[in-house]
Computed example of a mutant assay.
Amino acid sequence: MLIKRLLIAVSICMVLLVVLTIFTYSQFKENQRENQRYERYISAKIAQSLSNLLTAVLISDETLHKVMESGEKEMLPGQATTLCYDFKSIGTEYQELLQTSQSLKKVNYIQTNNITANTAQDIHFFLSRQLIGNGVLGDCTPAKSTITLNEEQFDKIKGIYEISKQWSVIAKNIVPGSTHNGDENVNWDLVVNDKVWVQLIEEYSAYANDSGMTGINQFFN
């Protein structure tokens, strides 16, 4: 009788163990799938922010090149508007990537900074308020006519162009395949998985430190 009870108890324990094992395994697989979905979501966000950042950096550099090569101290309405939106995008997307890299603990806080985003925002305000002449800070509504640059404005544009050229060089070196015409040749899966975007942030931070940028009222004051 005792042996029969023991066999029943053992059988019940075996069944419970099997059920527990199945439940634990199913939970593990579900957590794994959830982590994969989360990683895909984060990767997609990083790829989009990086694409927006690179496009804005390269187009703004090309636009400024045309302005400087024209030999005239003036800027067409479309050029001013393009630059205004591009530098606004650079500030927003760079800050998004920096915060993501810090949240995911992908970077050393000492090696990265927000100066690039602050500088882009400062340029954006200069273009919208002082150059285009819109009353609302940050408003990129197109200018109505060609903008004639005074000496102070022209000097600031030259300074912005120098920064833009360096940002463009960093972008092209780290993310081959990206041009001012677009980034359709970029393998985004490779860029995100190989943490190229983290290297980009570190390079921009290093350039900001080396060049002495502060990002505070360098152009808009």
Rank of each mutant, 00 (worst) to 15 (best):
Leu104Asn: 07
Ile123Ala: 07
Thr112Gln: 03
Phe154Gly: 03
Cys140Thr: 10
Val107Arg: 06
Ile147Met: 11
Gln153Glu: 14
Ser128Gln: 01
Thr100Met: 14
Ile110Asp: 14
Ser145Met: 09
Ser103Lys: 10
Ser145Cys: 07
Thr112Asn: 10
Asn114Arg: 12
Phe154Asn: 06
Cys140Ser: 03
Leu149Asp: 01
Thr148Cys: 00
Ala120Ser: 12
Leu127Thr: 03
Phe126Pro: 05
Glu151Phe: 06
Leu98Pro: 12
Asn114Asp: 15
Asn150Lys: 06
Ser103Gly: 00
Ser145Val: 08
Glu151Pro: 07
Thr119Ala: 09
Gln99Cys: 08
Ile132Cys: 04
Ile147Ser: 08
Pro142His: 05
Thr116Asp: 06
Thr100Ala: 06
Ile110Ala: 12
Ile115Ala: 00
Glu152Ser: 12
Asp155Gly: 02
Gly138Trp: 07
Thr141Cys: 08
Ala117Lys: 01
Asp122Val: 02
His124Tyr: 11
Ser101Trp: 06
Asn118Gly: 04
Gln111Met: 12
Ser101Gln: 09
Asn108Asp: 15
Asn150Gly: 05
Thr100Tyr: 10
Gln121Asn: 15
Thr141Ser: 15
Phe154Leu: 01
Ile132Gly: 02
Gly133Gln: 03
Pro142Val: 02
Ala143Tyr: 13
Ala120Gly: 05
Ile132Ala: 02
Ser145Ala: 13
Arg129Asn: 12
Asn114Trp: 04
Asp122Phe: 05
Gln102Pro: 06
Gly133Thr: 03
Asp155Asn: 12
Ala143Glu: 09
Tyr109Phe: 10
Tyr109Met: 13
Ile115Asp: 00
Gly138Gln: 09
Leu131His: 05
Leu137Lys: 14
Leu104Asp: 08
Ile115Val: 06
Leu149Met: 05
Thr141Tyr: 07
Phe154Ile: 01
Ala143Val: 07
Ile110Pro: 01
Glu151Thr: 05
Asn113Gly: 04
Ser145Gln: 14
Arg129Gln: 14
Asp155Ile: 05
Thr112Gly: 05
Asn118Met: 13
Leu104His: 09
Ser101Asn: 08
Leu98Glu: 09
Thr146Asn: 11
Phe125Asp: 12
Phe154Arg: 02
Glu151Arg: 09
Pro142Tyr: 04
Tyr109Gly: 02
Asp155Glu: 12
Gln130Leu: 10
Ser128Leu: 00
Val136Asn: 11
Leu104Met: 13
Gln153Val: 04
His124Phe: 06
Thr119Arg: 03
Ile132Trp: 14
Gly135Leu: 14
Ile147Glu: 07
Thr141Phe: 08
Phe154Ser: 07
Ile115Lys: 02
Phe126Tyr: 13
Lys106Glu: 15
Ser128Trp: 04
Cys140Phe: 03
Thr100Cys: 01
Asn150Tyr: 05
Asp122Met: 00
Gln153Gly: 04
Thr119Phe: 00
Phe154Glu: 03
Ala120Cys: 00
Ile110Glu: 15
Glu152Ile: 09
Thr112Arg: 06
Arg129Glu: 10
Lys144Glu: 15
Gln121Tyr: 15
Ile115Cys: 00
Val136Ile: 15
Leu149Trp: 04
Leu137Met: 11
Leu137Glu: 14
Cys140Lys: 03
Asn113Arg: 07
Asn118Lys: 13
Asn150Ile: 02
Asn150Asp: 15
Thr112Leu: 06
Thr148Ser: 11
